[in-house]
């Protein structure tokens, strides 16, 4: 068989190597360069008596910790047994009393209706599209059909308590101010000025403004662009977010901010929420997948992190984080 160029035959490969690269004198050959490189990396820190004692102490303390851990586990098991017994006794007692006692009168219970629940979730379920706001240069005529049809989606997304009936002219003014802030933020890339306009909005319309939820979302975006993460996270933490519409973007931003602050448990809840639903193949999903891998890695769940990265690469082989994911996987 013809020997492939640049490759050794098997017999050659079995031959012992007599000279180490490290012993080669400096030169321009590949072996000499490899030798120089390897020589530079040859030294390792000696594992001295201090290290020896330190690690030995850690091993001993770990032993103590393990024995303490056993004691704790036993204590918890006993506690659970006692608690379980008490609960089952209470339930039995209740059932006995309920079976012999008089029938309870029907009492009206104030439960939130499905409608109110849906309304609450609609805060973020409705996509926040600035286009639904009247353009600053062409404010809508108060009370016109056009205004009604365009304002409805925005109004529907307002969280309870419902906004007081807004004076139409006040709503138009509020819309104009908010649209201006959005324009500063997204078109002019001036988050500072946008924030100033949002402050004006707050000063004029307070927390009861008809467009307060939209103003809040815009404020969060401006704060993020300004790098004021703590303030943005404070606002996001106070929100009830769902993985729909603009809620997805807010959710992923909150998860990332929580992860950044070392709150990986809370961040994982958000990432899981985003990825539990049928996640569309967009950047938010990519961020959620990559972010969850990062959080799992931070928590020491290497298997979970690896699995997330593998899924990410399978789904987004040319995705935004594909290079980083490959590097992390050693591919």
């Amino acid at each position: 068989m013809k020997k492939p160029r640049g490759r050794q035959t098997e017999a050659e490969e079995r031959m012992p190597i007599r000279h180490r690269w490290r012993a080669q004198p400096p030169g321009d050959s590949d072996e000499a360069r490899a030798g120089t490189l390897l020589r530079s990396a040859a030294a390792v820190q000696p594992f001295g008596a201090r290290n020896l004692a330190e690690v030995a102490a850690r091993l001993r303390s770990r032993e103590r910790h393990l024995s303490r851990k056993w004691a704790w586990q036993i204590a918890i098991a006993v506690g659970l047994l006692l608690f379980g017994g008490a609960v089952s006794a209470a339930v039995m007692h209740f059932l006995r009393v309920a079976s012999v006692g008089p029938a309870l009168p029907d009492t009206p219970v104030s439960m939130p209706t499905s409608k109110t629940v849906r309304r609450r979730h609609m805060l973020v379920a409705q996509p926040f599209v600035p286009a639904v706001l009247p353009a600053p240069e062409a404010p809508p005529v108060p009370g016109s059909t056009e205004e009604k049809s365009e304002s409805l989606p925005v109004k529907a997304s307002i969280e309870s308590p419902p906004a007081p009936l807004a004076n139409p002219s006040a709503l138009a003014q509020e819309s104009r101010l908010l649209a201006g802030a959005i324009h500063k933020l997204r078109q002019e890339r001036n988050p500072g000025r946008a924030l100033a306009m949002l402050d004006q909005h707050r000063a004029r319309f307070g927390a009861n403004g008809a467009l307060e939820p939209e103003a809040k979302v815009t404020r969060i975006e401006a704060l993020l662009r300004l790098g004021r993460h703590d303030q943005a996270l404070g606002l996001l933490d106070a929100q009830t977010l769902t993985a729909a519409g603009v809620g997805r973007e807010m959710l992923v931003a909150r998860a990332e901010l929580r992860a950044e602050k070392g709150r990986c448990g809370a961040a994982l809840n958000d990432f899981n929420l985003l990825l539990a639903a049928e996640a569309p193949p967009d950047l938010v999903t990519q961020r959620a997948m990559y972010g969850r891998a990062t959080c799992r890695a931070q928590q020491g769940d290497w298997a979970g992190a690896r699995s997330d990265l593998e899924h990410y690469l399978a789904r987004f082989p040319k995705g935004r984080f594909a290079d980083q994911a490959r590097a992390a996987m050693g591919k």
Partner: peptide, 19 residues
């Protein structure tokens, strides 16, 4: 080494899109 690779990646990537 695997963990370290993750950690290095994490320390580079932890700020995600934000920072």
């Amino acid at each position: 080494r695997r963990k370290d690779r993750f950690r290095r990646w994490f320390s580079r990537a932890r700020h995600f899109e934000i920072e």
